[in-house]
Amino acid sequence: MGRRSPWRLLALVGPLAAWLLIFEVIPLVLVLAVSFMRRGVQGPIEVTFTLENYARFADPLYVRILADSLWIALVTTAICLLVGYPFAYYACQQPPERRARLLGLVILPFWTNMLIRTYAWIVLLRSNGLVNNVLRGAGVIQQPLELLYTREAAVLGLVYALLPFMILPLYASIEKLDWRLVKAAQDLGASPARAFWRVTLPLTMPGVVAGSVLVFVPSLALFYISDLMGGARAVLIGNLVQRQFTQARDWPFGAAASVILTVVSLLLIFVYVRYLSPDQGEEGPRA
């Protein structure tokens, strides 16, 4: 393949390289640069160098928002893991056909629009929604419960949207598990619980890590879910970024927030890639 002409290679790579440069590298570098600038009087920005946008995150108000957002993401990830692991484990123990069907039922909602799936919960949870009406009809409550616009509702919305992202890598990981090892542990006298903690779980850690990263990162950013379901009670880093660019029109501060979001995401993705490679990442067919 080395004898092909460099012009053909350039024709193949050039357009893509140009596209990535113009619509990805430059925009991302621009936002990084803007995060060190000041909000402009005429235009959106004034070109200078300052660290004040980052310094603002020392303000207790923003410390709380960051901490809240991280906490919401953590709770969302934990719930997805607790719900997803037993499901993936169960699916892997089924005969192939049933297994494919179970997995298909998880993948399908993954392909449907998250916004629409969020709306589905609003239909259920709003004060005049199905849940409140059923409860009132059954005489359990007199006044409708305030189910929407709480932090719990925001977490529910995120779990609902992101659960497939947890289940799929878990499934991939558990499916590869060599069950003979679990059996061996039990034959050697380990209780099922001990065999799970000492053998099954450690061997399926790549799936746990992958799923957790894939859930945690979007949980920091999916601003419309917290907006529609959590209202003012659940402000994610994503909401902070969105408001600076739409309502507040403070680009530099929004840019700084999105740089923080990017750094957190990239760190986690780095952990994930490091964890999976080199011995587990490019795994060939097992001999």
């Binding site: 621009l30 936002v31 969105q242 660019f245």
Partner: peptide
């Protein structure tokens, strides 16, 4: 892998 919002605001700014 990047949160979509980051690319969104970057493109908007550009």
């Amino acid at each position: 892998v990047l949160p979509e919002i980051v690319l969104g605001i970057s493109l908007l700014a550009t």
